[in-house]
Amino acid sequence: MRKSENKMTEEWRLLEFDGLPGIESQTVYHTLGLAMEKYKDIENTIIICWPKDPVVCVGYHQIIEEEIDTTYCQAKGIPIVRRPLGGGAVYLDDGQLFYQVIANLKSKRLPHEVSKMYEEVLKAPINTYKKIGIPAEYAPVNDIVANRKKISGNGAAEVGGARILTGNLIFDFNFDEMVKILKAPNEKFRDKIASTLRDRLGTIKQFLKNPPSKAEVKEILIKEFEKALDIKLRREKRFLPKEQEINDQLLKQYRDPEWLNITYQRRSELLEKRKVKISGSTQIYHSVYKARGGLLRMLFEIEDNFIKDIVISGDFSANPMNTPELLENALIGTLANPKHIYSAINKTIRDEKIDIPGVTADDFAKAFELTLKELF
């Protein structure tokens, strides 16, 4: 091993899965998180792959019925999958190259704080883009941009026994299909989504007249990960048998409605109340607020000026993964006043060591204030 300034170069495993079924492109990193929790001999790993068929992927904290046109997806035969990381809904296909960094929780190679992990790990894809002629730069909290266009979306969290970061290099993108899979109240709004998406999202194909092949970019990315993390990657093509067993189990779980609707089921009774009339002393409110770190959606039931029930969802990232449930439990029984809400959220974030990059207790209070201002 050669020495770096502060640490020894580590050997990590590189799993080159290349084209995978759409759903499996998400189960593979989840597999290693669970494997690291169960077994002591699972190596720190980087996976490079892409989906060989389309899939719609929603963030762990999102409610599918609020984000996705499920009727369209069913008609087109496009599967919907829930990943174990935060972030927003996205259409994935073979126009994207995925990198998935999975490190044991005990590893000191990756920072523990999610925002710092983004800064360190994203040096590799940023430098890869630069090597092929695209002026990429880091855009906190979790994006890579070039000329103000997003060219890579990323997510990170602790999953099982691992700290995981995933992201993509976008060679080409099916803008039309992305617009169709998203839920929209009407066609005018859908047209607005399409216009915004084309203005804000960029691809390698758009930036370069003669773009390099996926194989060429992949080789650059591998070298850049070795530099950024000070590691040596050992190439392999398949899971260990015990890892494959976990992956097979996850493939079944990912198709299970219970997993797909995990956020909905957490507060299904409240979500169903949106469809019925509530009594005079009880009101149902829906709040949508854009924080720096993502969109916050909150549905809450107020009875006699106290929060009786609440569900928090959105495209934010958070550690631990049950952060929304922890915050919901802290808010139930709280006076529906922004100051009390801020206090309850802030205390829970501190006590539970919650990390929500780009989202603060003040953001939650503002979201409530915008919706409940007529109460005060």
Results as ranks from 00 to 15, higher is better:
Glu5Ala: 12
Gly19Tyr: 04
Ser25Met: 00
Leu34Ile: 15
Tyr39Glu: 08
Asp41Gln: 11
Asp53Pro: 07
His61Pro: 02
Gln62Gly: 03
Ala75Asp: 14
Arg82Ala: 03
Pro84Tyr: 07
Gly86Leu: 04
Gly86Asp: 01
Val90Phe: 00
Leu92Trp: 05
Leu97His: 08
Val101Gly: 02
Asn104Met: 01
Leu105Ile: 14
His112Asp: 10
His112Arg: 14
Lys116Ser: 11
Glu119Asp: 03
Glu120Cys: 06
Val121Gly: 03
Val121Ala: 01
Ala124Trp: 03
Ile126Glu: 08
Lys131Phe: 03
Ile132Pro: 07
Val141Asn: 06
Asn142Glu: 08
Arg148His: 06
Ser152Leu: 03
Gly153Lys: 08
Arg163Met: 12
Asn168His: 03
Asp172Met: 04
Phe175Trp: 01
Asp176Ala: 13
Met178Thr: 06
Met178Cys: 04
Met178Gly: 02
Gly202Val: 07
Gly202Cys: 03
Thr203Ile: 07
Thr203Ala: 10
Val217Lys: 00
Glu226Val: 10
Glu226Asp: 08
Leu240Gln: 09
Pro241Lys: 04
Lys242Ala: 03
Glu245Arg: 14
Asn247Cys: 13
Asp248Glu: 15
Arg255Lys: 15
Pro257Arg: 05
Ser279Ile: 10
Tyr285His: 12
Tyr285Lys: 09
His286Gln: 05
Ala291Cys: 04
Arg292Trp: 06
Arg292Phe: 11
Met298His: 06
Ile302Pro: 05
Asp309Tyr: 04
Asn319Glu: 13
Thr323Tyr: 04
Leu326Gly: 05
Leu335Thr: 14
Ala336Tyr: 02
Pro338Ala: 11
Lys339Ser: 11
Ser343Gln: 07
Ala344Met: 01
Ile345Ser: 00
Arg350Val: 00
Ile354Val: 09
Ile356Pro: 05
Pro357Gln: 10
Ala361Tyr: 09
Lys366Phe: 01
Leu370Thr: 05
Lys373Ala: 09
